[in-house]
Amino acid sequence: MNTIAGTWLLRMKTPVGNIEANYHFEEQDGVMRGSATGAGETTPLTDIVVHDDPTGQRVTWRQSITKPLRLNLDYDVTVNGDALSGESRAGRLPRTRVSGERTSA
């Protein structure tokens, strides 16, 4: 089982302010799927890759949003138990710190 599976509250410190969103990950037939809900929209997560890392489980994914701005985001986080931390990046913009905690399995 992937430790990322479940529902998470993520917090991102961005140049336009702090943003919170709910992320849901689930494994179906050996494939990870996910979605994010925040800023009045729900978007699918794509290209989810999960692999073990010495510091926890490393997870990367992509997401396109339209609020507060139209952006294509790339995430790279490490899951350790019920907490995660890492970064997101939108093209050439500076990296954004991401932290989160599991809200349900």
Rank of each mutant, 00 (worst) to 15 (best):
Gly100Glu: 07
Thr96His: 01
Arg97Cys: 05
Pro68Lys: 07
Asn18Tyr: 01
Glu20Asn: 15
Met12Glu: 14
Thr14Glu: 06
Leu71Val: 08
Gly17Tyr: 04
Pro44Trp: 09
Val49Gln: 14
Arg102Ala: 07
Gln28Ile: 14
Tyr75Lys: 01
Thr3Ser: 15
Asp52Phe: 06
Arg70Cys: 05
Leu45Gln: 09
Arg62Phe: 00
Val16Pro: 02
Asp53Trp: 10
Ile48Ser: 05
Arg89Thr: 04
Thr60Met: 08
Phe25Val: 12
Val49Gly: 00
Gly56Phe: 04
Thr78Cys: 08
Asp52Leu: 09
Thr55Val: 11
Tyr75Ser: 05
Asp29Ile: 00
Gln57Met: 09
Asp74His: 11
Val16Tyr: 10
Asp52Asn: 14
Asn22Ser: 13
Arg92Gln: 09
Thr42Val: 13
Tyr75Arg: 02
Asp47Cys: 04
Asp76Gln: 02
Ala21Trp: 02
Asp76Met: 06
Ala5Phe: 04
Thr78Asn: 03
Ser35Met: 11
Leu9Glu: 09
Leu71Pro: 00
Asn72Lys: 12
Ser104Glu: 12
Ser85Asp: 03
Val98Trp: 02
Leu73Tyr: 09
Leu73Asp: 04
Ile65Trp: 07
His24Lys: 14
Ala90Asp: 03
Ile19Pro: 00
Asn22Thr: 15
Ala90Trp: 08
Arg11Pro: 00
Trp8Cys: 08
